[in-house]
Amino acid sequence: MAHPEYKTMDVRGTPVRVMRAGKGAPLLLLRGDDASEGWRDYMSTLAQSYDVIAPEHPGFGGAAKPEWLDGVPDMANFYLDMIDAMGLQGVRLVGLGLGGWIAADMAIRAKGRIANLTIADAPGLKIDGVEGVDLFLVTEEQGIKDRFADAARAEAEAVYKLTPESEDTRIANQMVIAQLAWSPRWHDPALRRWCHRIDLPTLIVWGAKDAIVPVAHAHEWGKLIKGARVEIIGDCGHTPYIEKPEAFIAAVSKFLAEERVEA
């Protein structure tokens, strides 16, 4: 499949760059700190069965940080606005890493247009005694190593990510990430309080060896969201869609196929 390019759309005055490809029900893919990157293989696989919509987060890519952006709840409301603006129905909402935190917050707030929820290796909850790597205190190189169980994959990913061309974008994106996740560090105390409002079929998928958001978080999300299914991918770090794409796609495809809904 030819890789789609970013196209800019406007959501209530905020420009947002979106890649879109595939046929089928809409699948809104919210990524994490990689949300300025181009199209990748796991997205092509999803696009064989779904209309994959992958936005770059507002404020990413060197755009000015939007005036309205103070925290993850603002990001969640923004993407609910975006779904409305695009007129999407029966959205398969898939959030990876930081995108999973945003997706869970969206599911708490409104669900009319959302059919089901998948979150992978998402921060957002605080579990006493469970500590991940503080990504704000390590170099980018070290942060990539920490994301992978397999050192060779980490090295390949570092070559892919750490290009001189993308350095400005990466530094600028970190500012938006800090806006969302600096304090409280990578969580929102209110999130846990309202997770019971998520009333959607939910899949929690996680790398067993995630050093950033340890696997205890997968089980915690599983407890907080009623009826959620938890799938753990063995020998895998923080980014299963990169490190174990087959296992990741298998888990997600199976869940989405079971959760067929009227579009």
């Binding site: 060197g62 704000f136 205190l137 390590v138 170099t139 400005d168 530094i171 600028a172 970190q174 500012m175 990430i177 800090a178 806006q179 600096w182």
Partner: peptide, 12 residues
């Protein structure tokens, strides 16, 4: 340098 330049503290 990571500790001294947290995101947003300094310009790109």
């Amino acid at each position: 340098p990571v500790m001294m330049s947290p995101p947003g503290y300094s310009s790109v």
